[in-house]
């Protein structure tokens, strides 16, 4: 069973890396870029089983390690 955890910075938290990427995209002439926020994606392979249980385990993983909830939000998806 495949799953994905996406970690992003909370609104209002400064993201100097996102800013730098935004600047680089603009200097490449890519049009219409208003802002960039950088985050992380974790692709996780789970033993097959109960989907609700898998979601609970992924939430625990995100809370305990994958995200720093002081500055980051996360989203958990079980892709099946």
């Amino acid at each position: 069973m495949k799953a994905r955890v996406t970690v992003t910075l909370k609104n209002g938290v400064l993201d100097p890396q996102g800013k730098a990427i935004e600047g680089a995209l603009k200097s490449l002439g890519i049009e219409g870029v208003e802002s960039v926020r950088q985050g992380k994606v974790f692709e996780i392979e789970l033993a097959d089983g109960d989907k609700a249980k898998a979601e609970a385990a992924l939430k625990a993983a995100a809370d305990k390690l994958l995200a720093n909830t002081v500055v980051e939000n996360y989203r958990v998806e079980v892709l099946g």
Partner: peptide, 15 residues
Amino acid sequence: EAQLLPGVLQRNAQL
């Protein structure tokens, strides 16, 4: 990270 102190240390502002 261990939450023994509050806050976080992010990338230096000038990168």
